[in-house]
Design a protein around this nucleic acid. Structure first.
Lengths: 177, 177
DNA sequence: CTTGGACAGTCAACAAGGCTGACGTAAAAA
DNA sequence: TTTTTACGTCAGCCTTGTTGACTGTCCAAG
């Protein structure tokens, strides 16, 4: 909670106060949180514009994205990735199926399950959305350089809840590369 | 859009494929986007639990947070930080004032403006929310080390829209440190 | 072989919190 | 004086989260 600790060493003029051993103050941690807020919002905004044209929202985006990356996954699997209720997901999924973006077929071995895949149109949209975000990412990554990108990813990975970190990291692994 | 480029060099087994000059592929950029999604969601979740106890949501959190960091700011200034409509903000603000979390007083020099400040109760909640998130941040920052944290912040800052990056960075600057 | 429980998915209804548009008031600026 | 700015508010809409109740499928214990 530290509010104005009694005595503090002088601050260097470096950006983000990067001098050793002073990077764990409440103020520094709060900066991290706030940066996440601003960066996430602006990152998302690029795709939002594309989605608005079609009358879709972020829920549609997330859905399209993960079906794109994991073709054939079931509704329950998608539920676990997105961490929303199945009722909430179902509404969006129904729309996307009706719009012929996603094809939902009954699983052969377990007929309770549905296998979700993108149609051509769905894949085109998923790629367009990804591109919109990649543009921003690419500029930032290039400016920051490979070591900074590596550190960036390591810190983000550390922020994921420990009990599902491995699952999340496995999910984003580069499978078709 | 590169999908399976015709020829590709073999991948190293490093985490996140960190070998030089291969960190700008679409797959790498997509990983960055996905990590932001998972990390942001889990980071937010800590505070969400505290908020739910009081019947508040993220909108209240953001509002409390920035009034805490910028005591005395006006409604218009808060509007510009949060980038929502005044109707949307006003709904939340009205609640927080009614609950005696935020005090809204007429500005002395320009009596059209309201100066927003937290009450003691409001500040206690703002601190509790901040602490909840700092706990996670602290662990991650400590594990990653100062250089990684510096890189993390640099990349996030780069993701903010250029035309408001300076304003955002000024806002998160450590003012009372 | 039947039946009861667990699991996958769907439908209905509600709440939070975004949005737009229109309007009113008070104070400052021109 | 007129116009602009800052703020508040009403009404209504949309997306996306929630819970509750329901159907269909599978499997295992009786």
């Amino acid at each position: 909670m530290s509010r104005k600790p009694a005595s503090r060493p002088p601050r260097a003029a470096k950006p983000f106060g990067g001098e050793n051993l002073l990077f764990l103050t409440d103020a520094q941690l709060r900066q991290g949180v706030e940066l996440m807020f601003f960066a996430y919002r602006d990152m998302i905004a690029d795709a939002d514009r594309l989605l608005a044209d079609r009358g879709y929202g972020r829920a549609h985006h997330r859905c399209l994205h993960f079906v794109w990356r994991r073709p054939g996954l079931s509704v329950t699997e998608l539920l676990e990735i997105l961490r929303v209720t199945k009722q909430s997901l179902n509404r969006v999924l129904r729309q996307l199926v009706a719009d012929d973006m996603i094809r939902s077929t009954v699983d052969d071995v377990d007929r309770r399950r549905r296998a979700l895949v993108l149609t051509e149109e769905g894949e085109a949209l998923a790629r367009a959305l990804s591109s919109a975000q990649n543009e921003r990412m690419r500029r930032v990554f290039r400016e920051a350089g490979p070591e900074a990108v590596q550190a960036f990813k390591t810190v983000l990975a550390g922020m994921i809840d420990e009990d599902r970190r491995d699952a999340a990291l496995a999910l984003i692994e580069d499978r078709d590369a």
